[in-house]
Design a binder for these strands. Sequence first.
DNA 1: TTGCAATAGTTAGTACACTAACTATTATCA
DNA 2: TGATAATAGTTAGTGTACTAACTATTGCAA
Lengths: 145, 145
Amino acid sequence: MQEAKLYSRYSFLLDRTARRVKQYAKQRFRELGWAITVDQWAILKQLADHGPQNQRELGDKTFKDNPTITRILDLLNDKDYVERKPHPDDRRSFLISLTKNGEQLVNECLPEVQKIRMKAWENLSQKDFKEFKRILDSIYDNLSI
Amino acid sequence: MQEAKLYSRYSFLLDRTARRVKQYAKQRFRELGWAITVDQWAILKQLADHGPQNQRELGDKTFKDNPTITRILDLLNDKDYVERKPHPDDRRSFLISLTKNGEQLVNECLPEVQKIRMKAWENLSQKDFKEFKRILDSIYDNLSI
DNA sequence: TTGCAATAGTTAGTACACTAACTATTATCA
DNA sequence: TGATAATAGTTAGTGTACTAACTATTGCAA
């Protein structure tokens, strides 16, 4: 049970780093004059990569729950980056798509977002990344219901 | 720049896993009848391990900012797990300490918290943990100002 | 020693996560 | 076919994070 002591701070490390990543990106975004958060970016990127889709699919892909998706889309809609259209096949749902404005933002931000990502991996190798992904996925699976 | 594509989902993986850890612990806590969150636990544990201290120190050790510490302590105080006493040397600050009730909760929860922690590391080795810590710390440092 | 800078903590506003309860619609099956 | 279950999305309440503005106190330097 001495392992418990060793592992005792992993959740602290995880939380701390995840917050730093968001914080860093938020700050860079702001410096560049883009009034979006990392989580809003994730939604925009998903729409840019995979086209119009409903909120459930957006949530599945970005691992966000329904209320969170609702709120983020409200904000993105206010800023005229996305629009909700009635879904042609299902009156319960909407088809969410990028506006012209949204597409333009994604194209403008993309190179900078890649720079932000690379910054996190300075002095780390591709092998490190694979290890990192393997361990995170293991933890995630271990704690899945 | 193909690395950018490879790394493109690391923040997603990080965020997803950090949230799962909190979510899992929260659920276990609730099943066991303990009405505290992971973040509240972190404060209680810090107090149990290092004795009475002011809010700034609590924040430094748990990597939480002042407003967050204020709010968490308000909640823990309402539940009679901690108390704020005037600091003998500095009238700006408080000395925060566990109540009897708080000490009792920490002792009661500790073994279960260790189980929760071990659960996350099933099928992973101590070497994995060291790699994990090294990589998280690197990312953290890379993004520090 | 006074006047300014730094520090401890609080409050308010916005954003996201989780839960639960809710409406509207669609799918299933007896 | 008609009752019921499942699904898509919203709303409300609580907890945490980040920022900014604020009060009170302490420290420091001219």
